[in-house]
Computed example of a mutant assay.
Amino acid sequence: MSQHFFQKKAVFIRDEDFDRLIGEYPLVVVCFVQSRCDLSRRIRPILNQLANDYFPQVKVVKIDLAKYKQIGERFQIDCLPNIFYFKNGQRMNNLVGLLPDEVIRNKLEELL
């Protein structure tokens, strides 16, 4: 995926791109969502702003669990939205639910 692919907003990725992406970029924020979930729709502007503000240092992506159920099972995701932070290929922590922008940013800032 090109650098341009990530500019301006958090993009959806496929589950088959997940492991490569996590290994390729030093800091990745992954938000697991579901297309028909109201909270998943409401977190979209927060993720897009995060992607824009931290580009190119941080990659912000989304995975739709309605399409890719296996990855949800892999990480035992029960609640949405669910945000995972990966640094150098390792899962560092995660946040669950629709949280304020500053909470999501503070967790990211801890990893920079």
Rank of each mutant, 00 (worst) to 15 (best):
M92T: 03
D101E: 15
E73V: 09
L98N: 03
N94W: 14
L108G: 07
P81A: 01
R91G: 08
N88S: 15
I104P: 01
Q90H: 14
V96S: 03
L80G: 03
D78F: 15
M92D: 15
P81T: 04
V96I: 14
R105T: 03
I83F: 09
D101N: 09
P81H: 05
E102V: 01
D101H: 10
V96M: 05
K107W: 05
Q90I: 00
G97A: 02
N106S: 09
P81K: 03
L98V: 01
L80A: 03
Q90E: 13
V96H: 08
E73W: 06
N82I: 14
C79A: 13
G89W: 14
N82W: 06
F84Q: 04
L95M: 03
K107A: 04
K107T: 11
Y85N: 06
V103E: 08
F75K: 04
C79Q: 14
I104F: 09
N94K: 15
N88Q: 13
N93M: 07
R74Y: 09
Q76S: 12
N106I: 02
D101K: 08
L108K: 01
E102D: 14
V96C: 05
E102K: 06
F84M: 12
F75V: 06
N106T: 10
D101A: 01
D101I: 13
N106L: 07
M92K: 08
P81I: 00
N94V: 06
F75N: 05
Y85W: 08
R105Y: 01
R91W: 12
V96Y: 02
L80I: 04
K107C: 09
M92C: 05
I83D: 12
G89S: 01
Q90D: 10
R105N: 08
Q90W: 13
L108R: 00
C79Y: 11
R74T: 01
D78M: 14
D78K: 12
L95F: 08
D78V: 15
F75C: 11
L95Y: 02
N94Y: 14
P100F: 10
L108T: 04
F75P: 02
G97C: 03
M92S: 08
G97N: 07
L108V: 00
V103A: 08
F84L: 13
F84S: 05
I77P: 10
L95E: 00
C79M: 15
F84Y: 11
R105D: 00
F86A: 10
R105K: 11
F86T: 07
G89T: 04
V103F: 00
K87S: 05
I104M: 00
R91F: 05
I77E: 02
D78Q: 13
N82Q: 11
I104H: 00
Q76F: 14
Y85P: 08
G97K: 00
Q90C: 14
E73G: 04
R105I: 04
M92F: 09
L99G: 00
Q76L: 15
R105P: 06
L95K: 02
R74G: 06
N88Y: 06
V103T: 12
F84H: 12
G89C: 03
N106H: 07
V96L: 01
N82G: 13
L99I: 06
L95T: 00
K87Y: 09
N94S: 13
I77H: 01
L99R: 13
